[in-house]
Design a protein around this nucleic acid. Structure first.
Lengths: 341, 341
DNA sequence: GCGATCTATGACAACGATGTCATCCGGTAT
DNA sequence: ATACCGGATGACATCGTTGTCATAGATCGC
């Protein structure tokens, strides 16, 4: 309500309690000695006026101690991967009283640039970024200015900065090898936007495993730039209905796994098409989905560690942390291909 | 990196371009007419110095236009209900350039009070709150000071403020009636903390439906204060293994639904125990889970509408918006009880 | 050509707070 | 009694920016 009277300031408190503004400041900050008499009067006035310390103003004056906020830009806050990451960051930041300004990028490069500019203008203490842009040279000035920045899930391109990722190539490789070992040769691959390096690496890993097993990837079975669960479902339904359909599917992102499972199910092929998903999610176990799991909690924890470290003055060269991934067998990935006829 | 030289200010830009500070301000804010000559010089200096407008300082000076931040305190950012809500809020706020400071409360009352105090100190423009406290009288001063506050998922208690919820009683009622209509008499109910009014209402709705159908709820089948999916699983496994086990289960929260499905499954009772869940989630359809869906997007949208309206000066009395819920039949809720022997 | 009017620019105070330094006080040493 | 000291308090400048007002110079009309 804009017509309400403005909040009380230290000046108001000082006036009401009959002391100087500076004394109020001392009481509020529990600084140097203030006589009990004055302290009591000030506290009473604070209470009467509902005075609340103004962190922004305080922060403007103090040079150090900064704003205690991190900017966190992720792919989609509603997606369990992003939200799990956000939560892990929160856990690491909470005890230090650091708050998180969070937003979704939706793989839109312009949105990323806009939001970064906004966060910089708000003078966040640091940035955690899952970039949507193909290269982040636009960040150069900020990095030069010493803005602690950590990339998560995707490496920086065009600039150098800390990053925390899994070995996506190895992840893709493991997924494919798993299917190959179970006898699959016709393997469909569903991928997100190819502009995302992470997606490229995963595909590359899949292809490497296949070639090592002397299986030449069929371009018709490698479908990329799939953005939604629904699209994944349609595309895979198509592949399954075609001639010489895949016997195994690798879905390179959690929502694509979900679309995959639907397509398999509605094609009446449950239990007959093998599926390995990239990224674990809360109900994957219940659906017997074999996945390459990234430890989201650890990704977030390491990212937080890096930013907070930089905040504390750490100024070693940028680090690129690689968090281990795990193949979790739950059934869907261990389905054998139908016997050749 | 703390040793980096501090960011350039308008003063620096003014000095470098040989104009007054105020002129720089005019250029930056595209205010009143500045000659092309000066504008060019200023812009060049801004570029050279990597000057970035300091929103915090600017905001301190301007009385209106506020900080363009909302505080958003939800149950658990990693849970799809909270994260879906956050995303809906983001969608509504993004175009207005309003950012979100988000945090999880984990049903801890102290954490709520602390975080609210922190957000107030940061002078957020408004608050979206899924409270963990039993009553929110501690908010009185802030409400009086005109802090736009909207409760989501749970009504305020002890104070009056806007809220957006579903009719939880009716939701519980519908869930129970659905099972009753399919012939169930022994219905287990799994609920979150009873301190949450939302949980109370849901149970109340369930009981009302049962009594209307002349079925007296068996206290042994009503289990409350279940916090995790794992606990729900254990508790239900116990009930299913007991004598006179339930033939139908109502899980009053999304994670409890997941625990329920696991218990049913690992008891080897898939397809033989009916389940209705409260809250839909991304993979519920794939698991044939019948649910009472709250339209999370709409919950978020209406909440945003209310806060943003208040920001725009709307000062009507607090509103309590009730968003419709829907029963979505997917199979698990339509399983008939075994024939009586 | 002169005053009136406008336009672009700058000087200065202020937003809400804290850092620095001066001042005032009583108490102590001499 | 005087000089000195240390502790409590306040005056003032300052953080980075914008609102207000003054001013200088250009423009206009008659």
């Amino acid at each position: 309500m804009t017509n309400a009277k403005p909040r009380a300031t230290m000046k108001d408190v000082a006036a009401l309690s009959g002391v100087s503004l500076k004394t109020v400041s001392r009481v509020v900050n529990e600084e140097s000695p203030v006589s009990d008499d004055l302290r009591t009067r000030v506290l009473k006035a604070i209470d009467q006026l509902d005075y609340r310390h103004n962190w922004a103003a305080s922060n403007l004056r103090r040079r150090v101690g900064r704003a205690r906020v991190l900017g966190v830009l992720l792919q989609d806050l509603a997606n369990s991967f992003s939200s799990g990451l956000l939560r892990a960051l929160e856990d690491a930041c909470h005890e230090r009283g650091i708050a998180l300004l969070a937003a979704s990028l939706d793989e839109e490069p312009d949105r990323e640039r806009l939001l970064v500019a906004d966060l910089v203008s708000r003078r966040v203490d640091g940035l955690v970024l899952m970039p949507a842009t193909e290269q982040q040279r636009y960040l150069e000035a900020e990095l030069r200015a010493g803005l602690p920045t950590v990339f998560v899930d995707r490496r920086p391109r065009g600039v150098d900065a800390d990053s925390v990722t899994v070995d996506n190539l190895a992840g893709g490789y493991d997924a494919a090898r798993h299917l190959l070992q179970h006898g699959h040769r016709r393997i469909a691959v569903l991928s997100d936007l190819l502009t995302i390096t992470t997606a490229q690496h995963r595909i590359e890993g899949v292809h490497r495993a296949m070639r090592e097993a002397s299986v030449e990837p069929d371009p018709a079975l490698v479908r990329t730039d799939i953005r939604t669960s629904e699209d994944a479902e349609l595309i895979l339904a198509d592949l399954l209905a075609g001639e010489d359909p895949p016997t195994g599917v690798i879905a390179l992102r959690n929502i694509l796994s979900i679309g995959t499972l639907r397509a398999v199910r509605y094609a009446g092929a449950s239990g007959r098409v093998a599926v390995v998903g990239f990224d674990d999610f809360p109900t994957a176990e219940l659906m017997d989905l074999t996945v390459i799991r990234q430890d989201v909690a650890q990704l977030g924890a390491r990212a937080a560690e890096l930013v907070l470290g930089r905040l504390d003055g750490e100024d070693s060269p940028p680090q690129h942390v690689v968090v281990p991934h795990t193949l979790i067998e739950r059934g869907s990935g261990e389905i054998a291909p139908p016997a050749r006829h």
